[in-house]
């Protein structure tokens, strides 16, 4: 028992932190347009002319921001934008897909823009597809959608559980980039939920109504609910494809501690991307969301620093299958297969 390594206890709670992050990002996407509307009122010195509801908005935003800024019209420009592209105190960050899409459309590289994606790319090289699990505002809604699907399933309604080829999204990415190249416009943004959500929320709040992108997004929600669980992210999303490719040899991975695993397969059931932690098959598409770590009843999943996944380590040592093997070995003699499992 002593050789069984225990994961650091904080890792179990990272999933909660992840939900906090997702919620914060999503709330920021709603708050920033509201702040912008407030700024426009301040800049126009229009308080007395506003209708009552707008006055309430003005007052609320003033209440929120008053402790931090003295001149809202200019100082609130510090944080602007969405996950597609944003600026923090003059420091610009962009989605790698925006950069790749723009390079495809222009067929040349505009370096100042390329540099804005450097930090996200560096994080992706280290943490893999972390954006999809930790930041993407669409993930927030998609995961709630998954929960809704689970409730509907529990209530006896039929929800979709179809499976498609995971490689489809790389095709979507390639097609989107090819289309961007042909049309000379960043077309991938039209089928990329975080970009759609970022701008549609802004349109809805500041410019008076959702655009057509919202219909597409609602379509993806229905697709996830009725056709394939989390289907858009798994099979279609071009951004997910790009992040998966960049994070293929990510440094920080989740691994299974075979000595602690009891083959309960809860990790496989909870994995949003339909990966196979039970058989050490995380692949390039794991987004380090830590949902599997949080649900594992025997603390058998841990972070590790490696460039590739472990090869399949055999059934978990606390599982029935492994113990059955062991008993058989004990009665006859040690088999190479059993030794291998021991060694790992």
């Amino acid at each position: 028992m002593s050789r069984r390594s225990k994961p650091f206890f904080v890792w179990r709670h990272l999933n909660k932190l992840r939900w906090v992050t997702l919620t914060l990002v999503f709330l920021m996407l709603i708050l920033l347009p509201l702040l912008h509307v407030y700024q426009t009122y301040v800049a126009a010195r229009a308080y007395d002319l506003l209708p009552l509801s707008e006055k309430q908005l003005y007052d609320t935003m003033e209440l929120i921001t008053a402790p931090f800024v003295s001149d809202p019209a200019s100082e609130l420009d510090a944080i602007k934008g969405n996950t597609w592209s944003g600026t923090f105190w003059g420091f610009k960050l962009s989605d790698p897909l925006a950069v790749v899409g723009q390079i495809a459309a222009a067929q040349s590289i505009y370096w100042p823009f390329f540099l804005t994606a450097l930090i996200p790319i560096a994080f992706t090289v280290i943490f893999g597809r972390f954006f999809c699990g930790w930041i993407c505002p669409a993930t927030f809604l998609y995961e709630l959608n998954t929960n809704l699907g689970a409730w509907l399933h529990w209530a006896g309604l039929k929800t979709g559980n179809m499976h498609f080829d995971r490689r489809m999204k790389y095709g979507v990415l390639a097609a989107g980039l090819a289309l961007s190249m042909l049309t000379g416009s960043v077309m991938v943004a039209a089928v990329y939920p975080p970009a759609i959500l970022g701008r549609e929320i802004y349109y809805a709040i500041a410019l008076g109504g959702f655009g057509s992108g919202m219909i597409f997004f609602l379509g993806t929600l229905l697709f996830d609910l009725l056709v394939a669980r989390r289907g858009f992210c798994r099979y279609v999303c071009p951004g997910g494809a790009l992040y998966s490719l960049i994070g293929r040899y990510r440094v920080v991975r989740i691994r299974r501690i075979v000595e602690s695993c009891n083959d309960c397969a809860k990790c496989n059931a909870v994995c949003e991307f339909g990966l196979d932690p039970l058989r050490d098959n995380f692949g390039q598409e794991c987004n380090n969301c830590t949902a599997c770590i949080a649900i594992c009843p025997t603390d058998a999943l841990d972070f590790t620093i490696r460039l590739t996944d472990y090869p399949y380590q055999g059934p978990g040592h606390l599982g029935r299958q492994y113990r059955g093997q062991k008993k058989k070995q004990g009665s006859t003699s040690a088999t190479p297969c059993g030794q291998k499992a021991e060694a790992l």
Binding site: G81, N82, Q102, Y110, V186, R199, Y202
Partner: peptide, 14 residues
């Protein structure tokens, strides 16, 4: 070609 449709220009417009 150059515009990525991020909406930042709109979000800072007074």
């Amino acid at each position: 070609v150059a515009c990525i449709g991020c909406g930042l220009c709109g979000e800072v417009c007074p």
